[in-house]
Amino acid sequence: MADRQLMTGNEAMAEAAIRAGCRTYFGYPITPQNEILEYMAAHLPRAGGTFLQAESEVAAINMCYGAAAAGVRTMTSSSSPGVSLKMEGISYLAGADLPCVILNVARGGPGLGNIAPAQGDYFQATKGGGHGDYRLIVLAPSTAQEAADLAGLAFDLSDQYRVPALILADGMLGQMMEPVALPPHRDPATLPPKPWALTGAKGRDPNYIASFALEPTVLRDLNVRRHARYREIEAREVRWEEVATADAEVLLVAYGTMGRIAKTVVRRGRERGIRVGLLRPITLWPFPYSPIRKLAERVRAVLTVELSAGQMWEDVRLAVEGRCATPFYGEMGGVVPTPSEILTEVMRHV
């Protein structure tokens, strides 16, 4: 077994980012993700990077824009209300085709809400929380180990497609500790080159980066090319996990913290002879429509469970398209349903 360290989800994402070659971090404090700032403040300078506590969330995301344009791996993090403040900057990053990693350690909402775990930011993350016709790559870890793994993947995918990547975690995952086997350190100098970056135009034509094109046909063409990349991401990068789906009568669909709790539901259900399985989306965009659709052909019901009023549920129903029943079970405001409560709901559909 690889050497494992006991880390919070927040620390695991921060350390994995540094190991992935992140060399600039800009943030502003908010619970329940302050450990990310603390970790970056302590460790990023030692890796030769720059940590800066910005004057606001808006400033932080715009600092990321500048660092990304200069070709440096860059990250910001916040929690729900703070991520709302970043939305203008995220739209600009998308419009300028800049890679950037954004961590949302989500909390109860709307408004100031509370600091308990919640999944009410799904729409904002996956459907374009900012203005304009753009997508983010959205990754949803369910353990501290997966948080570390996906933090590294987020940088790679974001660079490869020049699309900002958002990790949608929640307060529980951010605060809890688990053993984590960390990936090796990667030297930024060995990462794939970024010939488009603003690195000084000595000996070459100047590069131009902006999210601005006054002429409609020019902007249209930029959007068409960007959306072609989105189609490529949808074709190649869908990720999900299946548990006990082979003979399932009821299929749970749940992600993140709810996804891991659903695993306990599956285990307890199977112990009682209930044929329940789980599909856990790992990428929320691109969403695993196709695997859910295939399973919907042969189960009685697809039960979506979320820490929200039913946001991913809309995507699940788009995937199922009436092939079977699509009930929903959720809690809001930071309340986390117990495995027993979910199992009771499963029993109603067997």
Partner: peptide, 29 residues
């Protein structure tokens, strides 16, 4: 293992708790 703290707006003299789960399999809840 998992270690989950109560992480509300707590302070010295208030209440605090944490839950530790130990298992020989990957831990769900």
């Amino acid at each position: 293992v998992t270690w989950l703290p109560s992480y509300g707006p707590e302070m010295r003299g208030g209440t605090a708790n944490c839950t530790v789960v130990l298992s020989d399999e990957p831990i769900g809840s």
